[in-house]
């Protein structure tokens, strides 16, 4: 398969989204992951700390921000990543919390580039088994975080009725139409 081969042949139906004012603002063929950039897949603001932040502080920060990962930046550039998985390992080892985060972070993490397509992101994440990837710009600065949940949402947005209009329990699916 050629590079960027995640191309789904165009389906006849073209989804026409209307903006609030009734002007069509987007004509979107179905699922063309190689044309759309990762900005479409709901990247989130990264939580970043400097390398000498203590593990203790990072733990507290992650809890306070309810986030499962932090980016460690040095001179504005990505130096490493620390996730809840790494936190779990530290807890299991009974490690000290006073070390600087730079000692326990994952250095040279896999990243995405802001110009990458959603297709590239899907590939990198599913092949590498990542749940989130930092997105960097041309200068190596972390601009956002792409999470697997953002990609899932991006995909669902191509057929929202199919997912969002499901009943809360599968057993609730009616065999025949019911008014109420």
């Amino acid at each position: 398969m050629p590079d960027g081969g995640l191309f789904i042949p165009l389906v006849v139906e073209v989804r026409r989204e209307r903006s609030f004012f009734g002007v069509p603002h987007r004509l979107e063929p179905n699922l063309n992951l190689d044309a759309e950039l990762i900005a479409e897949a709901h990247p989130v603001e990264p939580l970043s700390v400097v390398p000498d932040t203590s593990v203790r502080e990072v733990f507290a920060l992650m809890k306070a921000q309810k986030t499962g990962s932090v980016i460690i930046c040095s001179d504005g550039k990505v130096a490493g990543i620390f996730t809840e998985r790494d936190a779990l390992n530290l807890m299991a080892q009974g490690a000290s919390l006073d070390a600087p985060i730079s000692e326990v972070m994952i250095t040279t993490p896999a990243t995405l580039h802001a110009d990458d397509t959603v297709g590239t992101a899907v590939k990198r994440m599913s092949e590498g088994g990542y749940r989130r990837l930092p997105v960097v710009d041309g200068e190596g600065r972390c601009v956002s975080f792409l999470k697997v949940s953002g990609i899932i949402r991006y995909l669902i947005e191509h057929f929202p009725q199919t997912v969002y209009n499901l009943p809360p329990e599968p057993s609730q699916v009616m065999q025949t139409r019911e008014g109420a």
Binding site: H158, F159, T162, V173, Q175
Partner: peptide, 16 residues
């Protein structure tokens, strides 16, 4: 558990 493969009369828009 049988979910209608044609939800609300729509044809699935793509293979996924």
């Amino acid at each position: 558990t049988e979910l209608d493969a044609d939800p609300g009369g729509r044809t699935p828009a793509n293979p996924l």
